[in-house]
């Protein structure tokens, strides 16, 4: 168990809800859920969720920290925003799902071999290189590095060719690819943000 996780358990011993409020994006809204279940029912990928959002909220309130943070449910969210639109209490469910996933990842508690988590990491790494996403490389990484494999790649071949023809994707991008205008500035900004975040987390460790 990582150090940050231990510290967080210690700090919020009494209330996982408080922990979520303080550390999860839009976590302050979790308390406003009234357990109607419309978010869970409205989710187009609902079948794939072991614990739908409303249940996750109840689990948070019931202090089921381990179960929530190690769950793969919130990783299922595709940001369609159906739940937010329907929520009678205006809870930003989509954001909380991502927030929870992010928090779990930071504590090192996300499920192993979680494809969404992996993709997210690929996306991030890809983005960091040039300050923009290199879609060709992202695709290649996804299909060949993560193990989605050749079959999936071939299935999507027509789309790729169509995008190429429509000039939506350039094969030349394979060689380096272009960057944002001020790549140096971008990287500096990211570095600064990382420092700030680290400082914030250090406080928890102290």
């Amino acid at each position: 168990m990582n150090d940050l996780n231990t510290n967080m358990i210690e700090k919020y011993r009494n209330s996982f809800l408080n922990e979520v409020e303080a550390n999860v994006e839009e976590g302050e809204w979790v308390k406003m859920c009234m357990q109607c279940g419309v978010c869970s029912g409205s989710c187009p990928l609902g079948n794939a969720w072991e614990h739908p959002p409303q249940e996750l909220f109840m689990m948070i309130r019931a202090g089921k920290r381990e179960e929530v943070l190690s769950s793969d449910s919130m990783w299922m969210c595709t940001s369609c925003y159906n739940c937010i639109v329907r929520c009678p209490r205006e809870v930003p469910i989509t954001h909380i799902m991502h927030g929870l996933a992010h928090y779990a990842r930071r504590l090192g508690m996300e499920p192993k071999e979680q494809p969404t988590a992996k993709f997210a990491q690929l996306f991030w790494d890809n983005l960091m290189k040039k300050g923009r996403v290199n879609e060709l490389k992202l695709g290649i990484d996804l299909y060949f590095k993560v193990g989605e494999g050749m079959k999936t790649a071939l299935k999507n071949k027509d789309i790729g060719i169509a995008m190429w023809k429509a000039k939506r994707m350039n094969p030349m991008e394979f060689f380096g690819g272009h960057a944002v205008k001020d790549l140096n500035g971008f990287q500096k900004a990211i570095k600064k943000a990382e420092e700030l975040e680290a400082a914030r987390l250090d406080k928890h460790k102290a």
């Binding site: 419309v38 029912g41 009678p88």
Partner: peptide, 18 residues
């Protein structure tokens, strides 16, 4: 809270939710 009502081929309203 029912998420949506759809209609099946028999004209029956279908309640969907959790």
């Amino acid at each position: 809270k029912v998420a949506s009502v759809t209609r099946d081929s028999g004209g029956n309203p279908v309640c969907n939710g959790v």
